[in-house]
């Protein structure tokens, strides 16, 4: 019998292998954050060190600058294939958080993602979302089909029984595959610590005693007070916290069902 993290790892590796076998043009949506970086590691586990699928990053142009620097270095170091998606038209038209947070997320993230999927004929995406992040993600399936406009028919999801995932693709539909759905924030950090994964430095406390707990666009993502400068300290902090992970994410709190609304339109 395995320990808990190992059993999570094996479950996720199984899902990654299922998706790779069944979905044409599978890609990994990589935000450089802790979750999708763990997911990237699980892809390597599944394929014995190989990364046989491209990574996709949706660049809103509002990302914290260090993230982009880190991204490019990481891709170079590890010889990865990266597709960067951006809604250039919306940016040219002056889209930004001042137009309304949900509108901005819709244009620069959701629309950019859907366009990138279409342009690159991506059949499915591995995403690092987790149930414990927020209420609408909690209700997700491991495999969730999205038609061309990205909508999530959350009121009538298909049955997903045992490990039998519905991975056949209708025309113009892409699959969202969520191998980390059952992981918690603490699981992710404990796993990063156990596997000694390379992780973005923004997660660690800086000289001002601040760190990011969740990474996103700079206008909408806040830091938390923390003295956690090491992985060990971060794990400890998460284990004892009573605040929610996405408390620093402005879009979540824009209205009561903000995430449900965003996600029903195709948000990640």
């Amino acid at each position: 019998m395995n320990d808990y993290l190992t059993s999570l790892e094996h479950e996720s590796v199984f899902i990654v292998r299922e998706a790779y076998k069944k979905v044409k043009n599978l890609a990994l949506l990589w935000s450089m954050g802790k979750d999708s970086t763990v997911l990237l590691h699980l892809v390597r586990k599944a394929f014995l060190g190989h990364v046989p699928i491209p990574l996709v990053h949706i660049d809103t142009s509002y990302k914290i600058p260090e993230m982009i620097t880190w991204r490019d270095q990481y891709v170079k170091d590890h010889n990865l294939r990266l597709i960067v998606g951006q809604n250039k038209q919306a940016l040219a038209d002056g889209m930004g958080p001042d137009k309304g947070r949900l509108v901005c997320c819709g244009a620069l993230k959701t629309q950019a993602l859907l366009d990138t999927i279409k342009e690159n004929q991506i059949g499915g995406l591995l995403l690092g979302i987790r149930r414990d992040e927020e209420g609408s993600r909690a209700k997700e399936r491991v495999v969730s089909p999205r038609p061309e406009d990205g909508t999530w028919t959350y009121k009538d999801q298909v049955a997903e029984i045992w490990n039998h995932y519905n991975l056949h693709l209708p025309q113009d539909v892409h699959m969202r595959v969520h191998p980390l759905l059952h992981w918690t924030e603490l699981d992710v950090w404990e796993y990063i610590e156990r596997e000694r994964l390379e992780i973005m430095p923004l997660y660690f406390s800086n000289a001002d005693g601040k760190r990011y707990r969740s990474l996103g666009c700079w206008p909408c993502t806040g830091t938390i007070d923390s003295c956690a400068t090491t992985l060990d300290a971060v794990v400890d902090e998460i284990r004892n916290t009573k605040t929610s992970e996405r408390a620093g994410r402005a879009q979540d709190n824009a209205d009561t069902y903000a995430m449900q609304k965003l996600r029903s339109q195709g948000y990640m």
């Binding site: 089909p145 298909v158 049955a159 997903e160 029984i161 045992w162 039998h164 519905n166 056949h168 209708p170």
Partner: peptide, 9 residues
């Protein structure tokens, strides 16, 4: 499980 093309029934 018994499935149609896209669904577990």
């Amino acid at each position: 499980v018994i499935c149609t093309t896209y669904e577990t029934v």
